[in-house]
């Protein structure tokens, strides 16, 4: 198990009121090394909050997070350096996840400059290698994010994320803001990287079809609580909970076979 989460809880206080909203309510799951856990739910179900809690971007109110056997939910930021080197995140909006004032070259150089790993090869060579990994031409090096398409930006974000050879990648709706054809390209890239580098994924999406394609196990989230969890085929072919059934039915309905090719 690369990641084990037990009884995770997180509440937010509404601004200007004393109301507390429980975004994540007693969520537990685990992730096997080299596999993908897909988390699905409607907007507001708490999926993005779980991503931020697991990445230690937010402190959790209660619960334990074990990464590679070590408890990390109570560590301070300076105790997390090892964790940070082994884990990365891909965000939903590819344009916003890149610094608009930095050229692609600088964006890709940043992990090395910050982490301080040269490993024998020069920075230039490493950057070219990263671009090749995400199947982009070297001519992209001198462009700014605003000159790139959504799919290209997302690839740069992925290249940046794999630069430090992470073992674990959290993908928070990585293809939701991309066009369908581009979605497929990015998903293919993620699958290829997982196969080549044995990265474990936490794949979060509201689109069940994408989750079904990418995951080995699926967790269905409803209003911050675990509705159902299990192997992918079981969830999609034999959903137990009524909510899960509704979700699965709706996602299948959209691609109705009234199309002859």
């Amino acid at each position: 198990m690369i990641l084990e989460v037990r009884n995770l809880k997180k509440s937010f206080k509404r601004p200007f009121s004393r109301e507390k909203i429980c975004a994540v309510d007693d969520v537990s799951f685990s992730l096997k090394k080299g596999s993908t856990l897909g988390i699905v739910g409607e907007s507001g179900s708490g999926k993005s909050t779980i991503a931020k809690l697991v990445m230690r971007l937010l402190p959790c109110d209660a619960g334990d997070i074990y990464f590679e056997g070590k408890e990390i939910s109570r560590l301070k930021e300076n105790g997390l350096t090892v964790f940070r080197k082994k884990t990365q995140m891909i965000f939903q909006d590819p344009f916003l996840s890149l610094d608009p004032k930095m050229k692609v070259r600088d964006i890709l150089a940043e992990p090395t400059l910050v982490g301080g790993h040269a490993n024998g090869i020069s920075l230039d060579a490493k950057i070219k290698e990263l671009l090749a990994c995400v199947e982009l031409d070297p001519r992209f090096l001198f462009r700014y994010p605003r000159e790139l398409s959504g799919g290209e930006c997302q690839r740069i974000a992925i290249a940046r994320a794999i630069s430090m050879n992470p073992d674990f990648l959290v993908c928070d709706e990585p293809v939701s803001s991309l066009d369908l054809l581009v979605q497929a390209q990015v998903l293919n890239l993620l699958l290829k990287l997982q196969k080549d580098r044995s990265i474990s994924f936490l794949f979060i999406s509201h689109d069940l079809r994408v989750v079904r394609h990418m995951s080995d196990e699926v967790l269905v989230l409803k209003k911050g609580q675990v509705c159902e969890m299990g192997p992918r085929d079981q969830i999609f072919q034999n959903p137990k909970e009524p909510y899960t059934k509704e979700l699965v039915q709706n996602s299948l309905q959209m691609g109705s076979p009234r199309f002859i090719i």
Binding site: M55, R84, M89, S97, D99, P100, V114, R160
Partner: peptide, 9 residues
Amino acid sequence: FVVASRLLG
């Protein structure tokens, strides 16, 4: 992008 940078350490 700032969060991403923080995650890089």
